[in-house]
Amino acid sequence: MKTRFITFLIAAGLLFGYSSCTAKAESNDSETATKSVSKADKATTMLTKAMFLEKVWDYESSPKEWKYKGEKPALIDFYADWCGPCRTAAPILEEVAGEFAGEVIVYKIDTQVERELAAVFGVKSIPAFLYIPIEGKPTMASGIARTKEDTKKMFTQNINTILLKKQQNNDAL
């Protein structure tokens, strides 16, 4: 029954034009655990649990109350190196992060390394994206669009409407 439900969710995601990977909890590749995607020239920032507690939300001190610690809206990409859609989204998200530099902070969390952070948000399918406005509750979305262009458009629209609270021009869609 559980397998049918998961298959349904994956099929539904593909039907609506979104693609994601189901998290492989049993995979603990040491190469993946030690691999770091963060480089000085990147517009995105890798988050560890300690950094998350310091910069985003200290869920250990206030587990029942969301208190965002950031000074700018943030987008967190929950990903894994083995996930194809995650690898597709990564350069697009890097580009979008550069375009919104100074307005929005874009973080990445490797779900194979930071399993506790993924569990805190109930991430079971990746890529998953947590949009965190300055005020209010965060919004979780998962999967990417069918094309790279539509995926970039998805990120841009979500940043503008969820994080920057800009009204969308329906004529432009």
Rank of each mutant, 00 (worst) to 15 (best):
M1L: 13
M1I: 13
F5C: 07
F5T: 09
F8G: 07
I10M: 11
A12G: 11
G13P: 01
G13Q: 06
L14E: 13
F16D: 08
G17M: 01
S20Q: 11
S20R: 11
S20C: 10
C21R: 00
C21N: 02
T22W: 14
T22E: 14
A23P: 04
K24A: 06
D29G: 08
S30I: 15
E31S: 13
A33Y: 12
T34V: 14
T34I: 13
K35F: 14
S36Q: 12
S36R: 13
S38E: 15
S38N: 15
K39D: 12
A40L: 14
D41M: 00
K42M: 05
K42F: 00
T44R: 08
T45V: 15
T45N: 10
T45H: 09
L47C: 09
A50H: 11
M51G: 09
E54M: 00
K55R: 14
V56K: 06
S61H: 08
S62M: 08
W66P: 03
K69N: 11
E71C: 04
P73W: 02
P73Q: 01
D77T: 00
D77P: 00
D77C: 00
F78S: 03
Y79F: 11
D81F: 06
W82I: 00
W82D: 02
C86E: 07
C86P: 03
C86N: 06
A90C: 04
L93E: 08
A97G: 12
G98R: 09
E99G: 10
F100H: 07
G102Y: 03
E103Q: 14
E103D: 13
V104A: 04
V104M: 07
I105F: 09
I105K: 13
V106W: 02
D110S: 02
T111L: 12
T111C: 15
Q112I: 11
R115D: 02
E116D: 15
E116S: 09
E116N: 10
A119L: 03
V120P: 02
V120C: 05
F121A: 10
V123C: 02
I126M: 00
P127G: 01
A128D: 03
F129L: 07
F129N: 05
F129G: 04
Y131R: 00
I132G: 07
P133A: 05
P133L: 05
P133G: 01
I134S: 11
S142M: 15
I144N: 00
A145G: 08
R146D: 11
R146S: 12
K148L: 04
K148A: 05
K153I: 07
K153T: 11
F155Y: 10
T156Q: 02
Q157E: 11
Q157I: 14
N158A: 13
N158R: 12
N158P: 06
I159K: 01
I159P: 03
T161I: 04
T161F: 01
I162K: 10
L163T: 02
L164T: 06
L164C: 01
K165T: 04
Q168M: 15
N169S: 09
N170A: 14
L173G: 10
